[in-house]
Amino acid sequence: MYRPNKLMLKIIKLFYGVEGVLDEYKLQQIDRIGNNAFLILFSYTIVSNLFVSFVSLNDSQMTLSIFILVNILFSLVVVVGYIAIAMKRLNLNNQEVIAENYSQKLNRIKRRALRRGAMMTIYFWCVERFLDWYFYHIPYIIGILSFRGYLKALIAGSILGVFMYIYWRSQLKKISD
């Protein structure tokens, strides 16, 4: 059976949220789910591009804005939604933990969620400073002194951290052995 290289395996695990061993059964199912997701996305691309090419004759700027928004929504809601449901249904991202290791695993998840939240806080802050500078010509130094900027980044990071903790915790499954 075809087995992707180590880097590809890491990307697949990260993208599909697979914890633990990525064995041949999981790879086979992920191949199938990914293939279906591609078919959905490809069909959407063909239809939407055709539709937009006709509609854009009247108001191209407005059409472009709506097209970008719909594309993002479609990818996030339909494609990611399909992948998440399919993965959940087959229990592919379940993580089985022995009862005595459960609290240890829970602590590890807390630390991981905290790290992810901190990364999001930094990322959000940097992106917001860049967007302020790019669109509104606000110098970086003003952004550094803005308390609101820090607060917004902290809120975004906290939301992601809490969400990731809940998500990872929902994947944990306690087993007796």
Binding site: D23, Y25, N91, N94, D177
Partner: peptide
């Protein structure tokens, strides 16, 4: 052997052994 032990020895998930 338990399913978990066998799964560990052949480097697959326990779920795969069960299937």
């Amino acid at each position: 052997l338990t399913q978990t032990q066998l799964a560990y020895k052949v480097n697959v998930a326990r779920q795969t052994i069960s299937l």
